[in-house]
Nucleic acid binder design. Structure first.
Length: 725
DNA sequence: ATGGGTCCT
DNA sequence: AGGACCC
């Protein structure tokens, strides 16, 4: 073997790839089973993101223009799928379900509809534990392939052979509980194989196609598949393991189908690469086991860009390296992307072509890094050591975006930002808060129990795509800023927090992007990134009761003291902010006015308003140079004591809170009223400093920030209707 | 294209 | 901050 440990990766891992069939369509069908028998398309803007198989049978394609799809299939049922919430929820539900079966949670999510499973340990445990006593009396295997896979003549295969003769096997799902598992038939290999079962005789499988070049010193050995099968023993052992894996995949697919009503396609092989490619051979609701000896010829038939990891750019570079710069049929003046598209159609290049004609050295020259070349060279030969990563319960980013024909002007952008950020905050609650304790009859849950933040994103990011930017992928411009802490106030409404975040961070970032920010926009994306996992997050990951962590019980062995302390500080901080918010909220607008009066030197009721309950409490500040009292229309920061009494920060009315620390304090936000009267306030330029834009409602005299005008109007409308009754 | 995601540089 | 990749 060419490198230490390669044999292990090549020969010992067993990987299953699952792919939920036309996932978005299936989610909608499960919500509305009546749609199952109808042609169904999921629309995002002008295109169909996907469609069900009924629609495909009528000629509808994925990513087709809606207008075209309607032409080919006039009775197509179309459901809008621009909001991904339901798909994300379903995806997470299925992932968590599958995850529980897999030892060490070796389950990696790819997008919403795919998972990789490393089932090596589960398979090897079951191979080692096949026990004659577990099996009932005999049914002889009837399937040639299965008996080939299952039975061998190798010395230590006696147990397996005998077990196989019994016909029924039991696959254990638990290391400790021998009763947990499922039965399977030794006589039948579930699903499909590549190559086809009928054509398959493992004893006379052709040798892999060797390339003529020397591979001895490459660090790789393309003969690995053959070398591996040199001995009958190892060959049959691998086949038996894959055979078991096929049964396990079948079990998982059936379980998902029975439990949640989703059909799943699966690939079974020894690497992520081959498992995934194998899975797409037979779809939907089917599975495919790639027979190891056929790996090279299987790969050889694929176009180069079909390798996961070889994207648009790399594929084009390789195509050009092989064929020279071609312009197969692309019209004059086509973009690079268009040329690539035509090249792909007119000059398909397969793995076989690349493998035969490009050496590792050549690849190294043409690709970005030696590492990339090495990886690709491995992939061409079926070598893929990429481990299955455990996907964390906590996402590394949360982002929301929307696209437009053309979006112009700061006003429009602000509206869009508020919409997007409102959704973003809602998603933070769904994805980053601990699940509510499940109420049980035995242990009644305390009403005081609060959801905890499992992770805290430190950064807010705004990304834009200007109208006439080109490029196949991103073509985005982005700017980031620290995410203020007040967005973690759990009982404030998302809309209120969104208004603040847009005002304090979103709009300043937009302005910071200069001309792009003010020009025509095609896409606006907001995201929170830089997740910092909390103690609670780790506990949840480890399956520990998080209340114990915070009760000070010892959970982890060592080295976690600092982290724990930081978490407690973080918890305290957020709770302080929430306490003040709630206090002011409970007292309502009237109370707010009264509270305002209590503050020395500010104003009377006429002059001062407080951002009250419906709008939440503003969590930003504006320091005023050497000014003791806030000016008209300015912000003042106050603190609350344990009784809910407000005072300015140092108790003598002279305190100016430093700009760096505002969100760390228990604060309320007051703003003098006079200048607000139907006139807009000026906006500040610096990120993080407030820019208030609001009007005073003529009905109730309350200060209303622009973003909340609509909601405020609805509030009065509701009041009016109540009175009419 | 759409509305998301990942990791690397 | 952007780029490449994935669905």
């Amino acid at each position: 073997m060419a490198w230490p440990g390669m044999e292990k990766y090549q020969n010992e891992r067993i990987i299953i790839h699952l792919d939920y069939d036309c996932f978005y369509a299936s989610v909608v069908e499960n919500e509305r089973p009546g749609l199952r028998s109808l042609p169904l398309g999921i629309q995002q803007k002008n295109i169909l993101a996907t469609c069900n198989y009924v629609a495909r049978a009528q000629g509808v394609k994925k990513l087709q223009l809606v207008s075209e799809a309607k032409k080919t299939c006039p009775n197509l049922v179309i459901v809008n799928g621009e909001d991904l919430s339901r798909f994300r929820d379903a995806s997470k539900k299925l992932w968590l379900y599958v995850r529980e079966f897999i030892w060490e949670y070796k389950v990696e999510r790819l997008g919403f509809d795919e998972v990789f499973l490393d089932v090596t340990q589960m398979i090897d445990f079951n191979i080692a534990n096949l026990n004659l006593a577990d099996f009932p009396a005999s049914v002889l295997p009837t399937c040639t392939l299965a008996s080939n896979l299952a039975c061998t003549n190798a010395d230590d295969d006696k147990l397996v052979e005998e077990a196989a003769d019994q016909g029924i096997g039991f696959f254990r799902l638990s290391l400790t509980d021998p009763k947990r598992g499922f039965s399977f038939s030794w006589g039948k290999l579930p699903g499909h194989t590549y190559p086809l079962n009928d054509a398959l005789d493992l004893r006379v499988l052709p040798e892999s196609d060797h390339s003529s070049q020397s591979l001895e010193d490459d660090g790789l050995d393309c003969k690995v598949h053959n070398d591996f099968h040199q001995t009958k023993h190892t060959k049959h052992r691998l086949h038996r393991r894959l055979f078991l894996a096929a049964h396990f995949a079948d079990f998982l697919r059936n379980s998902v189908k029975e439990t949640y009503n989703y059909t799943v396609s699966a690939g079974i092989s020894t690497t992520k690469l081959t498992a995934k490619l194998a899975g797409s051979v037979n779809k939907p609701d089917k599975q495919t086991l790639l027979i190891p000896a056929a790996t090279q010829s299987f790969l050889d038939g694929h176009e180069i860009g079909k390798i996961p990891g070889v994207g648009f750019k790399t594929a084009q570079v390789l195509r050009e390296e092989l064929l020279g710069v071609v312009q197969g049929g692309a019209p004059e003046g086509s973009s690079v992307a268009e040329v690539a598209f035509y090249d792909k159609l007119t000059h398909p290049v397969t793995i076989h072509d690349i493998r035969r004609k490009l050496t590792l050295d050549r690849l190294s020259q043409v690709l970005d890094s030696k590492e990339q070349a090495r990886k690709l060279y491995g992939w061409l030969h079926g070598v893929d050591t990429t481990p299955v990563a455990q996907t964390s319960l906590i996402p590394t980013q949360i982002s929301i975006e929307d696209t437009f024909r053309s979006l112009k002007g700061t006003k429009q952008a602000e509206q869009v930002l508020i919409q997007l950020v409102t959704k973003l905050i809602t998603r933070m609650h769904i994805d980053l808060l601990s699940p509510l304790p499940t109420p049980t009859t035995s242990t009644p849950t305390p009403t005081t129990s609060l959801q905890r933040w499992l992770a805290c994103p430190r950064t807010f990011r705004l990304s834009l795509r200007p109208r006439d930017m080109t490029g196949p992928y991103s073509a985005r411009i982005s700017k980031s800023a620290p995410l203020p802490r007040y967005v973690f106030a759990r009982d404030s409404c998302a809309e209120a927090l969104a208004g603040r975040l847009v005002r304090d961070v979103g709009l300043p970032l937009l302005r910071k992007m200069g001309k792009v920010g003010e020009g025509e926009l095609q896409l606006v994306n907001v995201a929170v990134v830089n997740m910092e996992e909390s103690k609670a997050g780790e506990a949840v990951m480890a399956g520990v009761d998080i209340e114990k962590v915070f009760a000070g019980k010892k959970v982890t062995a060592e080295g976690s003291r600092n982290k724990n302390d930081e978490d407690m500080d973080w918890e305290k901080e957020v709770r302080e902010i929430e306490r003040v918010y709630k206090m002011l909220g409970e007292k309502g607008v009237e109370g707010d006015h009264k509270l305002a009066e209590e503050i020395d030197g500010i104003s009377n009721e006429e002059d001062t308003i407080v951002d009250g309950q419906n709008l939440g409490i503003v969590g930003v500040m504006k320091p005023i140079d050497n000014q003791i009292e806030p000016g008209i229309g300015e912000d003042l920061w106050v603190k609350a004591d344990d009784n809910g009494e407000l005072s300015d920060m140092d108790g003598n009315g002279t305190d100016i809170v430093p700009a760096e620390a505002p969100t760390l304090r228990p604060i309320a936000h007051l703003r003098t009223k006079s200048r607000l009267d139907f006139s807009e306030l000026e906006m500040e330029d610096e990120v993080g400093s407030p820019s208030a834009r609001g009007v005073v409602c003529p009905k109730c005299g309350m200060g209303v920030l622009l973003f909340a005008l609509e909601a405020h109007a609805r509030f009065h409308e509701m009041e009016r209707r109540e009175q009419e009754k």
